[in-house]
């Protein structure tokens, strides 16, 4: 491909773009689902265990804040159907964007959340073992009782650790 632009051309056109005001968001393309690929772009290795912890973590965090599924989905700007899958199905692989939104919302480093959700190639064995411990401690989940609360607090501390 031939592509030659002068500095002057770039500047003139950029100023034109800028003059167009605050309501211009240049973009194009369908905004629904992303194209499917031949293979999943993140392959889940032996990360089933941390994934159980991921769903449980999300559910406990939500219940700890006394939020309904709808409220969390709305506040974190994620799909509610996905949220249900995350909490209910320990084998569900969430969308990267959803994990990112939840990490942001719960103020947890996104890299750790991605690992927990089984979306990262990184393998932090400390995180994995803590996730399993958390999953075991928080197994009977009806009300957020003292045991669950302290398990959740301890796990949040692990996730928030600066590497």
């Amino acid at each position: 491909m031939k592509f030659e632009v002068t500095k002057e051309w770039c500047m003139k056109m950029a100023r034109l773009e800028h003059e167009h005001g605050t309501d211009v968001e240049i973009g194009a393309g369908l905004f629904a689902a992303d194209p499917s690929t031949q293979q999943p772009e993140y392959t889940v290795q032996e990360s089933a265990d941390p994934r159980i912890a991921f769903g449980r973590f999300v559910r406990l965090m939500r219940r700890g804040r006394k939020q309904t599924l709808e409220k969390l989905a709305e506040d974190a700007d994620i799909d509610i159907t996905e949220l249900v899958e995350i909490e209910e199905d320990s084998h569900y692989t969430p969308e990267p964007r959803t994990v990112y939104q939840l990490a942001s919302y719960f103020a947890i480093p996104s890299a750790k959340m991605m690992q927990l959700a089984g979306l990262s190639q990184q393998r932090d064995s400390h995180l994995v073992s803590e996730a399993i411990r958390f999953a075991a401690r928080s197994e009977k989940v009806t009300d957020l009782n003292e045991t669950e609360r302290s398990a959740l607090d301890a796990f949040v501390a692990v996730l928030s650790e600066q590497k």
Partner: peptide, 13 residues
């Protein structure tokens, strides 16, 4: 409207 876009997936696809 593009806030749900995933460029990793797009690039891979």
């Amino acid at each position: 409207q593009s806030r749900h876009w995933d460029w990793r997936r797009k690039a891979e696809a």
